[in-house]
Design a protein around this nucleic acid. Sequence first.
DNA 1: GCGATCCTGGCC
DNA 2: GGCCAGGATCGC
Length: 274
Amino acid sequence: MPELPEVETIRRSLQGVAGRCIESIYFSALAPVETTTPKKIRVALLHQMMTAIDRHGKYLLFRTKSGAALVVHLGMTGRLHFLQQPTPRPQHTHLELIFTDHSRLQFIDARRFSTISITQDPAYRDNPFLKRLGPDFINGLVTPEAFVSRCRQHPGLTLKSLTLHQGVMAGLGNIYACESLYRAGLNPRRRVKRTSSEELKCLLAAARDILTTGIRQGGTTLRDYLDGLGNRGTMKKYLQVYGRDGMKTLDGRGLVKRIVQGQRATFYAPEVQK
DNA sequence: GCGATCCTGGCC
DNA sequence: GGCCAGGATCGC
């Protein structure tokens, strides 16, 4: 479940891709290529040099010298492997970029909840995924006041749905959403319209704080997640509520309860979050 | 705004 | 054998 800190950690682990030239591209028959085709991706990327890897929310953008970018969302179980030499493709490898120096980038996803697409437009208007995204939680230039007004456009949403809504702000997934609401002392069932502007600003600050800690810890490895070089993340030991149903919060201030909101588990501490 | 849906490995 | 994980979309 790569969220912003995991995707950012992967991005940093893949810096070595920059400067390499794509010699060939492998696609599996089941590659989760969305809104485009393997052929179009080949045309856009083949023989191009990678110049930079950027991130917006949970999306990675592999930019090439021509101005095109490969856009990757890892879904639940997507992984990227950057390898210095030819290596057998693991099961469920859906895309492999092979560079002229024989290093390669493998994209693996058993469940195919991930998406691969392309963009040629710096403003993302040509990409149906990217054009819907709100500002990035960490890199986005959003004042607390601007954040509040974005929230106010969705008065009926619960705070849990709000935090997961990538069109409001991009980057939070289930783990960091639960942790942010705990940090802000806000009940995930509250509606935006019943939440003061001060409380919403507190939520923004909490999310930024948790996400920054997540990046510093290299992400949260619960089961699957590894960065592009195979390293685990160490954020799990800082989680206050996620996965702690029936236990005390890490800081001991409350008892964690698990509820389901929109078919998704929410962990929170009713005594602490009002 | 909500709920169904996609998908498969891991675990009971 | 059946349930669970859940990001994002789509239809209601």
